[in-house]
Design a protein around this nucleic acid. Sequence first.
RNA 1: GCCGGUGUAGCUCAGCGGUAGAGCAGCUGAUUCGUAAUCAGCAGGUCAGGGGUUCGAAUCCCCUCACCGGCUCCA
Length: 649
Amino acid sequence: MEKVLKRIEVTVGGKTLTCEEGLSLGELFATAGIKEAVAARVDGRLVDLQEPLKEGCRVEPVFLDSPEGLEIYRHSTAHVMAQAVKDLYRDVRLGIGPAIEEGFYYDFDTPHRFTPEDLPEIEKRMKEIIEEDRPFKRVVMKREEAVRLFQGLGEVYKVELLEEMDEEEVSIYRQDGFVDLCRGPHLPSTGWIRAFKLLKIAGAYWKGDERNRMLQRIYGTSFPDEGALEAYLEHLEEARKRDHRRLGRELDLFSIEEGIGPGLVLWHPKGALVRSIIEDFWRREHSRHGYQLVYTPHVALSDLWKRSGHWDFYRENLFPPMDIEGREYIVKPMNCPFHIHIYKSRLRSYRDLPIRYAELGTVYRYERSGVLHGLLRVRGFTQDDAHIFCRPDQIEEEIKGVLEFVVYILRAFGFDEFDIYLSTRPEKFVGTLDNWERATNALASALKAMGLPYQIDPGEGVFYGPKIDIKIKDSLGRSWQCSTIQVDFNLPERFGVEFVDRDNTHKQAIMIHRALLGSMERFMGCLIEHYEGIFPLWLAPVQVRVLTITDRVVDYGKEVLQDLLKNDIRAELDDRNEKLGLKIREAEIAKVPYVVVLGDREKEGRTLSVRSKRRGNLGSMDLRALVDLLKGEIEGKVSGLRSEEEVKK
RNA sequence: GCCGGUGUAGCUCAGCGGUAGAGCAGCUGAUUCGUAAUCAGCAGGUCAGGGGUUCGAAUCCCCUCACCGGCUCCA
């Protein structure tokens, strides 16, 4: 008897089509003329192209140029890598192997210690697997069945994952003899993978918990074509060239010396100059924005830290106490208790609030040795700290003020893109639910009122209160966490931070911690990479270098130098008897934004030949014209990151 | 702290059981030069530190320290 195929209706990309029941999504796309789809979205759910169609579903193709498509592609590459590793080495047990932002990784537990030399071998095997074009086959089974399957394979980590799942049914994927527990979807077959590269080997705790066994992780990435992969590798190279540790040494900005100690920064004159310019700007803006500047000591009695709770909650980050005349002192890990004491040094009226204390406070924290990283993670650093004491009814207004301020400050450094996160109450917390809710709402409504888009990070708040974190995107599109705004219910309680209200009763004040730049160290590290070491003129440690061509013009060079200095331009003179080409080259390498070239012609006509680092030879002009040009650029805090128009404006 | 890797001249690196090398930087001298490297000479190292194996160790082994890539944590 002839089988009659039922016709069903489906919606594809908004259009309704009729087709045979049992047709796969891949076949459907083929008949509909949709090419290059790697998977499909059916009623909002991502599925394989092999899946058969169901009556009345809504289907959208997923392409490689979408984030989901690329993720599927990379996830499939991870599976191929895992197969290659299992093919090449014995006793390999699989951890997890997801796609990540710029590629993928897979964790393995094996007696074999992976070395960088293994990567080409694994890549070679991967290429073979891709060449063989094995289909990724999805199989749905009962969870117990999957447990038995993976137990039989000795895949203890997969079994552990399965045992933690609630689902009755799970899916596994097979290609060749390789089996993996996986939600999917995947590419139709291994042959779809075109360009990939394995990048690095690292240790990683099982489930990210340091109490667990450490697995070996291999990172890799894959792209739709070789060109995109090449571009990505160039991007990595570009980032390497901008590494602030490298530029810090090359530009003589700072160093971290073995004889001083890990995570302790020496600021060399040029780095210190840039830092002091930022600090001057910071102080001036804080005064203008209603903050009062304070200074506080670097050490204090340990009793202070016991009262603040740091002794209990923050012990692993404290430098050990020191005994002075029988009393215990601690090097400060934070500035807040000092600011609280200044607040408490007299009675405060509700009329006095808000009170805002700001300090570039240098703190010391013991950071585990493995986490230190250039200027970005150190043991001694200066926070651009401030604490706002206010009444509960002032929270939202204060938060708005801080948000406005932070955006203003960050923009001055050429950061225009932000990712903002609102972190809510964690499991362990102090304070009342009511307070948490009020403060969280105040943070959210301040963000809304400012029109700043944000994401919620549920449960990621600090134990003492909710917070807003602002991540900046640098010129390479990388994210850096610097700014943070935190409401604190803990310290006002512990220290009895109060004000006398209108009704003559004492009420607890609200305390807000905030840092705009985060720390001078981290912010400078970030700035160096953001600017590629080419500081905008207002920050450049040397703004102009005057170059003489012959000894005959040294006296004119000295005169020009003095004129520039008199006009508050940071200038230096290179009057060595060297060829101009060499002097220009050295100025370029030192990333000096402007050079002034002086020869017999300039001396004769009392002019300057000006060359810009970013724009090349600007030709001849007189001193006044140069100073005006420089002043304009300095005043406008022109960053040069947005190219010509900004400079010409 | 954990996993892996790396420590050789100020910097970047070669040498990987048999007397420590190069380029750049530095110093000295010559050169007076027009928009990214003038030439020559000189000097510079307990091969991270300590211990071991060996007739002999920068090289092989062990320990410590620092750094690098990750994990965990974080301004």
